[in-house]
Design a protein around this nucleic acid. Structure first.
Lengths: 156, 156
DNA sequence: GAAAATTAGTAACATATGTTACTATTCAGC
DNA sequence: GCTGAATAGTAACATATGTTACTAATTTTC
């Protein structure tokens, strides 16, 4: 199991195992979550980026697209596309801002709110189920570690 | 900060904050890692899926494409494409298996090994830097929590 | 207060990724 | 040992995502 260090080893001098590489494990875990949650989105006819935008608008009630960009890892093009899709499905409304006509404030329609609630319910249930595998102290440790990693990921 | 529970709240009855939703935080963290590590791949002219395949071959010395599929969250088409790319760049060689001519065994060329070592070095350095933000016990707890979540993500 | 720089958002293009269906080969059952 | 199911891998297509460059509105600077 220990890595060979002789010159014949394909990875001579570097002991690297993808399956033990933490960033890879975290990315893979994220994929697994996404795949699982996709069922909930699909059932409601909503894509992943659309769901994210929906959730951010729901949380803030009224928010400009650029502020959605600031609160997610999505770029402004993804947000633009997601908003168009949501508007088409009549889940979101754009209200041009009088004081700055470049920005449009986004709000949910009542249909948008009910879709949001249905997906959020499923998402929270799923989160609760997977977290229930952890002890309370493990859960707390995970949260603080995630916070530290979030900071470090972008600054180190 | 507490969610309103009256009927006027856009998320009445559901207290959901995307930024606090653990699966979302893990996906976002994965994106941040990928973005950071992409610099190392780009410098060597290798894509993310190609790097993953490279790493798995390096670890096993000699492995069939289907077994790469089994060891990563990639589907067989992604692996097929990555292998083609790596073969084109002469980082990987395919050797048709005599006992079953459907499968081709993959090995690294010496050039492939040196590229692998360079990227692995950068990746391990990056991992070490971000993990250095955690205490030893936090690191251990993270590993066990990740293992539990990996199991739960696909089964719950 | 006009010209230059900045910002919000989108269009158009290129690239990447997922999906379906196919070929070639091997395996299983009879 | 022949027929039907299974497997490894890929081609061709559809969809999604990232990138660049643009428009329109606003702010800044002189």
């Amino acid at each position: 199991m220990a890595a060979q260090k002789d010159g014949l080893s394909p990875n001579a001098g570097v002991s690297f195992s993808l399956e033990e590489f933490i960033p890879f494990r975290i990315v893979s875990l994220g994929h697994a979550f996404s795949r699982r949650l996709a069922d909930a989105y699909d059932d409601e006819g909503v894509t992943i980026p659309e769901w994210r935008v929906l959730a951010v608008i729901a949380e803030h009630r009224r928010i400009a697209a650029r502020d959605v960009v600031a609160r997610t890892p999505m770029d402004k093009m993804s947000v633009s596309r997601a908003v168009s899709g949501l508007e088409h499905k009549q889940l979101v409304e754009r209200a041009p801002e009088e004081t700055d006509r470049r920005v449009a404030m986004l709000t949910l329609t009542s249909h948008g709110r009910s879709i949001f609630r249905r997906i959020a319910k499923i998402a929270l249930d799923y989160e609760a189920r997977i977290l229930s595998e952890l002890t309370v102290s493990e859960r707390k440790a995970l949260c603080t570690s995630l916070s530290k990693l979030e900071v470090g990921a972008n600054n180190l």
